[in-house]
């Protein structure tokens, strides 16, 4: 286990492996997006309540799932990084932050676009949108902290502590926002959040969710490769790669 972890955690090995895997991941997410979009936009029937506007769900819900998933993944990297001091965790967590922030932004923006025909306004202080907004602040805070500290090692370890504090707080924030929303429940009942979902809509939703996950993984590897090259540009293995023309 330990030899495996160290081999996998070594930048050179990771760089080569990620480079080999990534083209396959790219092909996979393109195929998944194509199937998901076809099933979601063409095959799935029109919803009898919301008409065709519900089709935004196929991008809104996967981005919302990803926004939370990526934050938890970053917190896991933070814990591993603080306990075992694996260099790779810093690279992976920092590469994840802009991706997670992008998904959070997409969840907010598509939710707002969906809200316009459903609620009549672009923005409603609905529990889910509000939680998502706070999550965006948490991502931006982590990125601001990384940008403010000149020393890479200090920045990452401070960021890791912030991520762990954040991940402990997220359930509390989530609970408090839910509670706040029920307290101030507006009079109009929203049409969002249907109690059950038909399989013809669930299948494209799940395919899109997997497509978003694979997309994240592929972009994570790609960003991590760039960061590794930048950090290790003076080491022997990188220079050897460059001289042999394999870069």
């Amino acid at each position: 286990m330990w030899t495996w972890a160290h081999k996998f955690g070594s930048p050179g090995y990771f760089y080569a492996l990620a480079g080999k895997v990534n083209p396959w991941l790219t092909a996979l997410y393109i195929a998944l997006f194509a199937t998901g979009l076809y099933l979601g936009l063409v095959v799935a029937p029109t919803d009898y309540q919301q008409g065709d506007s519900y089709r935004i769900i196929f991008v809104h819900v996967p981005s919302a799932w990803m926004s939370m998933f990526v934050y938890v993944v970053m917190a896991v990297f933070a814990a591993i990084g603080l306990i075992w001091r694996l260099k790779l965790t810093a690279v992976l967590a920092k590469a994840s932050a802009p991706l997670g922030a992008s998904f959070t932004f997409l969840a907010l923006a598509t939710g707002s676009i969906w809200g316009k025909p459903m609620w009549g306004t672009w923005w409603v202080w609905d529990a889910r949108l509000t939680s998502e907004l706070i999550l965006l602040f948490l991502y931006l805070g982590f990125m601001a902290l990384q940008a403010a500290m000149p020393d890479r090692q200090t920045a990452w370890r401070a960021g890791a502590i912030l991520l762990l504090v954040g991940v402990v707080n997220i359930p509390i924030i989530h609970f408090s926002v839910d509670w706040w929303y029920t307290l101030h429940q507006p009079a109009t009942i929203t049409k969002l959040g249907a109690p059950s979902i038909h399989p013809s809509m669930l299948v494209p939703l799940l395919i899109m969710a997997v497509a978003f996950k694979v997309f994240y993984l592929s972009l994570l590897l790609s960003r991590a490769r760039a960061e590794i090259l930048h950090r290790e540009r003076r080491t022997r293995w990188v220079q050897e790669l460059a001289r042999s023309g394999q870069l």
Binding site: L138, A148, I161, I173
Partner: peptide
């Protein structure tokens, strides 16, 4: 504690902590 080494870290401190104070 996180921003103690950052010069003029006051605004950054608010960015980090205010979301956590929402509950």
């Amino acid at each position: 504690a996180l921003v103690v080494s950052v010069k003029r870290g006051g605004v950054l401190l608010s960015l980090l902590v205010l979301p956590l104070c929402i509950p």
